[in-house]
Design a protein around this nucleic acid. Structure first.
Lengths: 274, 274
DNA sequence: TTGCTCCTCACGTCACGTGAGGTGGC
DNA sequence: TTGCTCCTCACGTCACGTGAGGTGGC
């Protein structure tokens, strides 16, 4: 609600008391403003811009407006309320009837679009409380839900979420493919169990001896099940190693993950794989 | 459509090529801007305002953003798209969950109101071609339609319209009463005939002798039918003589109407009425 | 006389846009 | 080397808002 609209509403509840002047039906700037529902300053601004013609003055130097000014001003306000820039309003009002109708149709179209946008905004606003859905595409949200249902801890899910957010900023369509692949891979109970084990390990000391065993399990799974090795730790060599970026992001967040990663890499190399 | 949204849309059609940097998953300001769909300048502006925390810099002095910045920025954009002022966004994002939910509900309410307003704007825009309905309440529009159906000339209808517009700016509710009364009075065929006669007379020379006869008819009708004398020409003495203002406006528009008015006044006085 | 409206500068506001002039990685 | 992104001032824009200082009718 603009101040102008507020002012207008207040005044229309109580009888307007601006009518002091008798003897001429011409309106003062304040009367005109009240009637049309704009501010006095706005009218002066329209005069300055040349959008509304300067009316004649009375003996006191006051501007005096006729019905034509009311009509012009309502035209201006109507278009201005529809978020049409003043420069455009000037064009539209000075246009031929044909051009005028076209412009009106265009403005109406823009209004319809704006209404659709605002409805979408309401959806997003409502989702602000919820969380993930605002930052990630539905596919990634589904992946996170899947992890949660497997029993992965909230902290790890958050790390995973942040990783995908960073990756999405790079090349969305490629990352979407990976998300889909990872969702499929997670149907495997053994990979699920591994995920949970790693989840628990994230809080361990990087020197914890159990990391050795965990690394063995990981490498074995990669070896025999041909699980998406790219996604687990090894960078593909054809394209920017996005998985490596994700990995380095995790390294930074969890020292034990970093250690686990190093162990896996060395074990893989020991097995004769690059 | 804001320039920012346009930019975002363009980029999402083609793969983003901003990812040059390898080795760190931290985003540059341009990557962040592209991903979230705002301009680089907007992000810097949010930093300046203290709305978005300044991130760490890399060795080149470039800002480097993490997932948390993405999340914060999307929050800001979502609220900003909903036309929430930046000062308010700061309040809302720093609020407790309870206050936050309340604020969200309030913003959603404001959006709903805005949507309703825009729908009304579409109606008004569509009516811009038509005319009268934008400047006058339905009752007055009905009155004008009635005059048109009686056969009053467009020029006179326009004068009548302009007169009502000026009167409405004064005391709307009183004028609405008059409009209703006038509509009732115009059901009288004799008054209709008189109206048409005056209509034709408006283009005459003020010295035209036929104005005498017309004035006689008018006075006679006022005398014997007790037609709203207030509305025809004589000012009521209890309140601002609005009808007199209307009359003087007509005087200014049509010299023959002015003459007619003078004739009526003198004839009424000759008949012993004030 | 007090209160309200009117007048003309003219600076302020909000959310950025837009160069100006310069640096840094492929 | 060229092109692109990044950096920091700092002035511009759009549609008015908001005093500043003064006049004029009830």
């Amino acid at each position: 609600l603009t101040p102008a609209e507020n002012g207008h509403r207040e005044r229309s509840l109580q009888p307007v008391s601006r009518v002091r002047q008798i003897g001429s039906p011409m309106l003062t700037i304040g009367q005109l403003a009240d009637y049309v529902g704009v501010t006095v300053r706005a009218i002066r601004h329209y005069h300055q811009r040349g959008l509304l013609a300067e009316p004649a003055r009375d003996s006191s130097g006051y501007r005096r407006y006729g019905a034509d000014a009311v009509i012009d001003l309502i035209r201006i306000k109507t278009l201005s309320d529809a978020a049409v820039p003043l420069a455009r309003i000037e064009e539209v009002l000075n246009a031929e009837p044909k051009q005028f109708s076209d412009a009106i149709a265009e403005i109406d179209e823009a209004l319809a679009t704006r209404i659709r946008d605002l409805k979408r905004q309401r959806q997003r606003i409502a989702a602000l409380d919820k969380g993930d859905s605002l930052f990630l595409p539905p596919e990634a949200v589904d992946l996170l839900d899947q992890l949660r249902s497997i029993g992965v801890s909230p902290k790890t899910v958050e790390m995973e979420r942040d990783g995908w957010i960073l990756l999405m900023a790079g090349s969305p369509q490629r990352v979407l493919k990976w998300v889909t692949e990872k969702r499929a891979a997670l149907a495997d109970p053994e990979l699920q169990a591994l995920y949970l084990a790693v989840d628990r390990a994230l809080d361990w000391d990087p020197a914890d001896a159990r990391l050795e065993d965990l690394a063995d399990t990981m490498v074995a799974l990669v070896e025999y099940r041909h699980v998406e090795s790219e996604q687990l730790e090894s960078p593909s060599d054809d394209d920017p190693p996005v998985a490596a970026l994700l990995s380095s992001y995790f390294d930074q967040r969890s020292p034990s993950w970093k250690r686990l990663n190093e162990l896996c890499t060395s074990k893989m190399q020991a097995l004769g794989r690059s």
